[in-house]
Amino acid sequence: MTAPTPPPPPPPPPPSTDAAAAAPQWLQVVLSVVGVLGGAGGFATIAAVVVKRGKFRAEAADVLTDTALTLVQPMRIRMAELEAEAQTIREQLRASNERSHRLQASITQLRTMLDRWYALIFAPEASLPAIRSTIREDRRRIQTSGEVRAEPTGDR
């Protein structure tokens, strides 16, 4: 759209001659359309606000709360996961504590037995049959209680 027109009136955008008469025509149409659309939209909006007053029950505060909940929800889920994890770990800790107590008890028991045997062996009136019978009895007692034997098969 290059119009090489040397004459003084330099406005390039509007077509040159009869546009001066034609432009206001379509301009008026465009203006009327825009104005009518805008005015109608505005008044329609006002009418809608007046009519649908009750439909806007949700106040903006509710929307804010809703948004806040949406933001908080992932954290809530994460927290539940962490709590479950902590629960299982606490359970494991308790089990392993119990196991270590049992082991300690059995060690103490074995130690006392060892001391008793030592004393038995080094007693002045020690005799082989007496020692044998005592040891056999101790061993039978340990096997029946089963406490020491069962330990190494603890969980984990």
């Binding site: 203006l31 104005g35 659309l37 805008g38 005015g39 505005g42 008044f43 909006t45 606000v49 903006a60």
Partner: peptide, 29 residues
């Protein structure tokens, strides 16, 4: 109520947009 204020603002913005568009077209032409 919040929603009423927002609706009035919407109406105003529609009308103002139309009015200023008309003026901009007029000026531009």
């Amino acid at each position: 109520r919040y929603a009423t204020g927002l609706g009035l603002e919407l109406a105003s913005m529609l009308m103002l947009g139309a009015v200023t568009s008309m003026y901009a077209i007029t000026l531009g032409v």
